[in-house]
């Protein structure tokens, strides 16, 4: 029974962290699909979202208002990022664009130090955080919030891209930039929209995790890199697959931490990344094992 309860416990914490990875990973995939940019600054949106929400909430705003405003602010930051760093370099090579986004992530992190300092901060839980016991495993309501919000985020994104006009336009850019332009859709505008949305998703992820593990200026890098691993498991271009990848990774990490070593869980995640890249670069769920050279 004890092993079972530990199992449940680990499974839930895996789902929680997986849901955070999922939100960030969707942002990756959306950005990558529309702009071809692998955005290393994606994790920083989570950091900015979390810290902004903490500040706004600390300034006396009700929690829901602080969260909404923080997301809006990060969306604007995302738009600004697209206009100042991605758009001017849109004709550069993939590697150059990656490095530009790394540069931007440095800027975000450094600015965060100026604004919030280096001490970790925390956000109060969304609701009363009395532990719930299921099968002797102790769960916190905030974990459930995280999972629920992430699922809502995932499904509303699915709705957005498949059912709304703007979403379809963004998707059209993925399929064929030229055709999209013929249809009167400007890929440049779509790039702006895609990155702004991704920024918002990242911010949401940061805000959700803040009550659980706190927030600090350097939280973005690892979150971002883990979301990368998730996106790669999903094949980089497939958002639903990336979400599945995110949950798989979260659960794997959680079990690795529980049964083996907290320190080595990062190594395990990245070993998984390398294995994916070497063996199945098109993702775990790719139909054909086409060679990607």
């Amino acid at each position: 029974m004890e092993v079972f309860s530990q199992f449940i416990q680990l499974f839930f914490s895996g789902l929680t962290i997986g849901s955070i990875y999922a939100l960030i990973a969707i942002g990756f995939v959306v950005t990558y699909n529309v702009t071809g940019v692998l955005n290393f600054a994606q994790g920083e949106f989570a950091m900015l979202g979390a810290l902004t929400a903490i500040s706004l909430s600390g300034a006396g705003l009700p929690l829901w208002a602080a969260i909404s405003l923080a997301i809006a602010i990060v969306v604007l930051i995302g738009a600004l990022f697209e206009k100042t760093a991605i758009y001017p370099a849109r004709h550069s090579s993939g590697a150059t664009l990656i490095i530009i986004t790394i540069g931007v992530s440095f800027v975000f992190r450094g600015l965060a130090i100026f604004i919030w300092g280096t001490q970790p901060k925390s956000l109060r839980p969304f609701t009363a955080n009395d532990p719930i016991t299921i099968f002797q495993a102790v769960l916190l309501p905030q974990n459930l919030w995280a999972i629920a919000i992430s699922l809502v985020g995932v499904f509303s994104m699915g709705y957005f891209f498949n059912k709304t006009y703007i979403g379809k336009a963004v998707s059209a850019c993925v399929v064929n930039k030229f055709a999209a332009r013929l249809m009167g859709i400007h890929p440049e505008k779509m790039s702006l929209i895609a990155i702004s949305i991704s920024a918002g998703l990242g911010a949401l992820a940061g805000i959700v995790i803040a009550p659980i593990s706190g927030a600090s200026y350097n939280m973005g890098m690892m979150l971002g890199m883990k979301a990368f691993v998730a996106a790669v498991i999903g094949g980089l271009t497939n958002a639903p697959a990336a979400v599945v990848g995110a949950f798989l990774l979260g659960i794997l990490e959680s079990f690795a931490e529980g049964f083996w070593s907290a320190g080595l869980k990062d190594a395990i995640s990245f070993a998984l990344l390398l294995m994916m890249l070497f063996v199945k670069p098109n993702g775990l769920f790719a139909k054909a094992t086409g060679k990607r050279v």
Binding site: S92, I99, I100, I102, G103, V104, F108, R109
Partner: peptide, 17 residues
């Protein structure tokens, strides 16, 4: 802390663009 990364970030972006 490592506040100077702001400047390196800007340097990197400006150099590459």
């Amino acid at each position: 802390g490592e506040f100077e990364i702001v400047f390196f970030g800007v340097l990197l972006v400006v150099m590459l663009i």
